[in-house]
């Protein structure tokens, strides 16, 4: 097993205001291939900043970021952007679909940009949309979809280029339980197929799919360990009706 993603003493200090604000204060993190890491912590603990830096959407103040064995924090913005097309999938709380493209094109575009053949991109899009119960919405415009459906399309889009790592920031933040269920199912499936995932979430159901939990507090990792499965199998142990 090798580290797909590695952060070494990563620091982010926002210095726009009157006082510099340290958001991430020396994070060391290694994510192995196929690992699903949940990142939790109070708001303001630096979770989102960390994940944005890992995907090159925010610059680091100091420290190193390595992706697939290559140092990326020193890349120029455009070089980073090219690399990101191939290797990173992003999904956020707000979905940012391209409004004047169909759902199908929204999902296929990142795959095509990453250099995947049109045929393969279409097959990939079809299987992702089907897995998210969106097969019949392929020709719709994003505006015709509900918020929950748009978020599912955003997840399909993030996975379309078979990224080395899927980075997610509160991907189920705005979803009702029905939409969350479809997202959970797909995340579980792609993780089983070996997709590496790093996900910031407050949603315990999503976090509990992960193998490992990283807890942030005040910009530092205060806990990093496995989420064990007990596999009791019986409901009686978790539900107590009197």
């Amino acid at each position: 097993m090798s580290a797909v993603l590695k952060a070494v003493n990563l620091v982010k200090i926002y210095s726009g205001g009157a006082l510099p604000v340290p958001a991430v204060r020396g994070v060391d993190l290694e994510v192995e291939e196929g690992e699903f890491v949940a990142v939790m912590g109070p708001s303001g603990s630096g979770k989102s900043t960390l994940v944005h830096m890992l995907g090159g959407l925010d610059t680091r103040t100091s420290g190193e970021i390595w992706l697939d064995g290559k140092r990326v924090d020193t890349l120029s913005e455009s070089a980073w952007a090219l690399l990101r097309r191939e290797k990173v999938g992003f999904v956020f709380q707000f979905f940012n679909l391209v409004a004047n493209m169909t759902v199908a094109d929204n999902v296929e575009l990142p795959a095509l940009l990453a250099g995947i053949s049109p045929k393969e991109a279409r097959e990939r899009r079809e299987s992702l949309l089907a897995a998210l119960n969106l097969g019949d919405r392929a020709d719709a415009a994003p505006a015709q979809l509900s918020g929950g459906e748009q978020q599912r399309v955003a997840l399909a889009r993030a996975l379309a280029n078979k990224p080395s790592v899927l980075l997610a920031d509160e991907p189920t933040g705005n979803l009702d339980s029905r939409n969350t269920r479809d997202v959970l199912r797909l995340l579980g499936e792609v993780h089983k197929q070996g997709q590496t995932i790093v996900m910031v979430t407050h949603d315990a159901r999503v976090a509990s799919l992960a193998d490992r939990l990283v807890s942030l507090f005040d910009g530092q990792i205060v806990d990093d360990g496995r989420i064990t499965r007990r596999r009791t199998g019986t409901a009686g142990e978790v539900i107590d009706l009197r």
């Binding site: 509990s208 989420i227 499965r229």
Partner: peptide
């Protein structure tokens, strides 16, 4: 405790 709760949640998910 947080990890323990997530383990319980994983059980509920399986269930």
């Amino acid at each position: 405790q947080r990890r323990h709760y997530l383990s319980l949640m994983a059980d509920l998910n399986d269930l």
